[in-house]
Design a protein around this nucleic acid. Structure first.
Length: 808
DNA sequence: TGGGTTTTAGTTTTT
DNA sequence: CTAAAACCCA
């Protein structure tokens, strides 16, 4: 290889002339600058839909094409694996295949890679396992119970949240203990929980999600020569979605783009050194949009992006404001809403594509009604009836605020025969049977992980009950060995002959599986065995799947099929990653993100949370549950900046839509089994008059004030639908109270029945369902619910106050 | 030890 | 209301 080595060093002056023209084709001036700028630090403030992925990929392609950097000198951090794969393909298409050695991955994947590679340097097992949230919680549960900390008010959730938060701030157990107030019994107990949690992880050779980042930072700080390895290698670091980085991630980036001291530069380096023999810092490019920061709950610190220029005084800032995704109507709505967030740098998205179709609004009686509307519209758009529109299902997405909202949507979609997917919602890997199978695999790779062994000890049933487990655990503790070792010595424990045999059999099986996973010794080289073979061996010899099949239970049959599906996935994984072993498979699964499950062109509608939707785009978007208490969510009311964060969430949702946006809500929502009245979200009011075409408006006759209802969102001047509040919303955070009513919608479907009372046995008439008989009444006052057996429509639950019914 | 029943707790968002 | 967890009995 005879590269021109001088060319590898970044030149602080833009080298526009050298970047191939085709990489700049079709870019607007700021985009062009973002591709061409060369310097230590660059912040690209990329509004929604402003073509940032395009800019980022061309910037990378430019660096490679001009020989400013080898692909292996580039590190690009994305938010999801899906985004990483997409970027990899797009860069490959631009530079013609030569991107081997380039790292494009998520923060977590990159850290795992570094940690596994450097594990031995600081006494860590390279085959450490990654605990997901459920694993962490299971461990914490044991610890809290052990310490009787529950009486102090500790819950698994609160402890987990607190530990996660501390780790994201790079505060480890010891650092926390140093400043803890031990006079407070609760705080003292927490210190103990945190410490034990961490030692348990270490003993199990496991890390939780937050550790992956934090430990990498600690590694770099403790071993400058290890850090230097990566500082020398990565000459260009690019970070996407920078507004959602937390402190630990920020610190990691800072470590990576630090210059290398002369003593850490090998004599034969091919990188140009400074006068003192050191190497200057890598160049850093970050892309983000503070208006789309929606992960504060995960420790994301908006200051990372807002104060970027303070961190890097020489930084260039490029603003991308032209939107290439959405119609002007959609952008107007988005701009208007986000403008209500104070404390933000003004930014106004614009487009050249024209107004487009109006936003469609709909208000259902209930979540089911709302879901039915969505289903009907999807059906119509797909052209099942009209034939005019030929929108593919995968061009449509339905967004929800909370996971529980997917349920009614799912029910209606099934009934309507609309194919759908819920990325991240299926929780395939959280199913008990999958966790069982995975626990076997983890135990094969990491025998120190007692948690996984305990899980499979008696699954399927092999007669190892709590008593036997305790005996094994006691032996393990006594000998200071992992549970896995204790299994081998089961014969010493004077257990029953049957039980002992079962234990030894399991032990032998795990040994055999471990041998297989390491691979056959062909010509002295170890090739990791295919994960499929290992899992198949385990499932066959344990009889796990067979046991499920044998029960004859339909649910167990479904579980057996899930395990088969997992087997298929291991096979598929090996197909796509040829030399990949079991550890790679497990890592891959652990770091899977919800959005990674989205397949393009799979012919189904995607239903997902607003958080999952970040970074995606769809021709048609349904934004559902736009109600007070849901968006903004009740839980956010207490948090500082909560309502603003929720507004950004709303903004993210709106700006995902390319051509059509539907906004819907329900007048009542059920949770915990009872139904309550819901009010339209305050964010709806922030959308300018005329942008929304209400098919069914959130009525609201103004019977209390003297103010005439404003035709806020009536289209074409005709006040067909009206949407107003009695007076203006209070400036205070509280939503309007019971004075507001759902009444007198022009369609006549939404009404106020006053204090109509119904009793069991009454005959009533419903405008949609026809005649029926009241079968039961529950609830009080405005929330009175009647259960009605309709003569033709079957059994329905109705909110008496607003249902379109009359007593006969 | 296993199965069945009662009880209780939980609902924000996620790598 | 639902799902998981605790509890109880055979």
């Amino acid at each position: 290889m005879s590269f021109v080595l001088e060319g590898l060093e970044p030149d602080p002056i833009a080298r526009g002339s050298e970047v191939p023209g085709e990489l700049l084709a079709g870019l607007n001036p700021p985009q062009r600058e973002a591709v061409l700028y060369r310097g230590q630090a660059l912040l690209i403030v990329a509004g929604a839909g402003s073509g940032k992925t395009s800019v980022l990929t061309r910037r990378i392609a430019g660096l490679i094409a001009t020989r400013e950097a080898y692909p292996s000198q580039l590190l690009a951090i994305t938010f999801t694996n899906k985004a990483a794969n997409e970027m990899r393909e797009r860069v490959r298409a631009l530079v013609g295949g030569a991107i081997e050695g380039m790292w494009i991955s998520t923060f977590h994947s990159a850290c795992v890679r570094i940690l596994r590679r450097q594990a031995e340097a600081f006494g860590l097992s390279p085959s450490f396992t990654i605990y997901d949230t459920a694993d962490s919680r299971a461990l914490l549960k044991r610890l809290i119970k052990e310490l009787d900390a529950d009486i102090l008010g500790f819950t698994v959730g609160s402890a987990a949240a607190r530990i996660s938060k501390l780790k994201n701030e790079l505060t480890d157990a010891e650092a926390f203990a140093r400043n803890a107030n031990f006079d407070d019994p609760k705080e003292a107990a927490f210190v103990e929980i945190f410490r034990r949690y961490q030692t348990s992880l270490a003993r199990a050779k496991a890390m939780d999600f937050d550790d992956l980042i934090a430990q990498t930072v600690y590694l770099f700080r403790a071993f400058p020569e290890v850090a230097a390895l990566y500082q020398r290698r990565f000459r260009h670091v690019l970070v996407d979605e920078y507004q959602d980085t937390n402190h630990a991630q920020y610190a990691l980036i800072r470590e990576l783009v630090r210059g290398v001291k002369p003593q850490h530069v090998p004599a034969d380096t091919r990188i140009r050194t400074n006068a003192d023999g050191g190497i200057s810092p890598a160049s850093l490019t970050v892309v983000g949009d503070s208006d789309q920061s929606i992960y504060a709950f995960r420790g994301a610190d908006i200051r990372n992006i807002v104060e970027f220029e303070r961190d890097f005084p020489d930084a260039r800032v490029v603003l991308l404001e032209q939107n290439y995704r959405s119609s002007q109507n959609i952008l107007d709505a988005a701009n208007a809403v986000i403008a209500n967030n104070f404390d933000r740098v003004a930014k106004n998205l614009f487009t050249a594509t024209g107004a487009g179709e109006p936003i469609v609004g709909y208000t259902g009686y209930s979540a089911h009604d709302e879901a039915q509307f969505v289903a009907d519209e999807v059906d119509a758009l797909h052209g099942a009836r009209g034939g005019g529109g030929k929108l593919s299902y995968d061009d449509i997405a339905v967004f929800v605020r909370t996971n529980s909202q997917t349920r009614p949507l799912e029910e209606i979609f099934i009934r309507s025969g609309i194919p759908y997917r819920i990325p991240g919602g299926t929780k395939f890997y959280e199913r008990a049977e999958i966790k069982d199978a995975m626990a076997y695999l983890i135990q094969v790779v990491n025998p120190a992980d007692d948690l996984s062994l305990r899980r499979v000890l008696n699954t399927p049933r092999r007669g190892i009950g709590p008593a036997t487990e305790a005996a094994l655990q006691a032996h393990a503790d006594r000998m200071g060995m992992p549970l896995r070792e204790a299994l081998r010595e089961a014969a010493q424990l004077n257990l029953g002959a049957k039980v002992t045999a079962a234990i030894l059999q399991l032990s032998q099986l795990l040994d055999d599986a471990a041998e297989m996973s390491l691979g056959m010794d062909t010509q002295g080289v170890l090739h990791p065995g295919p994960p499929f073979d290992v899992l198949k061996l385990l499932m066959d010899r344990t009889g796990y799947v067979a046991a499920l099949r044998a029960t004859g239970d339909a649910q167990d049959e479904a579980r057996a099929e899930n395990v088969e599906e997992l087997l298929a996935q291991t096979r598929e994984f090996r197909r796509q990653n040829e030399a990949a072993g079991l550890l790679d498979f497990l890592t891959n699964v652990a770091l899977l993100a919800a959005a990674d499950e989205i397949e393009d062109e799979d012919g189904s509608v995607s239903i997902m949370t607003l958080h999952t939707a970040k970074g995606l785009e769809y021709d048609t978007v349904f934004l559902t549950g736009v109600e007070e208490g849901l968006l903004p969510h009740q839980m956010s009311a207490g948090e500082p900046g909560g309502v603003q964060e929720e507004r950004r969430l709303f903004y993210v949702g709106v700006t995902r839509a390319k051509r059509r946006l539907y906004i819907s809500l329900a007048m009542t929502r059920s949770q915990f089994g009872d139904t309550s009245v819901a009010l339209p979200s305050r964010y709806l009011q922030e959308i300018p008059e005329g942008l929304i075409d209400w098919r069914q408006s959130p009525g609201g006759a103004n019977s209390h004030g003297g103010t005439r209802p404003r035709a806020l969102n009536a289209r074409g001047g005709g006040a067909r639908e009206r949407f107003s509040y009695a007076g203006s919303l209070p400036a205070s955070p509280q939503p309007p109270r019971e004075k507001r009513e759902w009444a007198n919608s022009v369609t006549g479907k939404v009404r106020d029945n006053g204090d109509l009372t119904l009793d069991v046995g009454d005959r009533i008439r419903h405008s949609d369902f026809g005649d029926g008989r009241v079968a039961g009444v529950s609830g009080q006052g405005a929330k009175t619910i009647a259960e009605v057996m309709f003569d033709t429509a079957g059994r329905k639950k109705l909110l008496v106050k607003i249902a379109p019914i009359e007593k006969l």
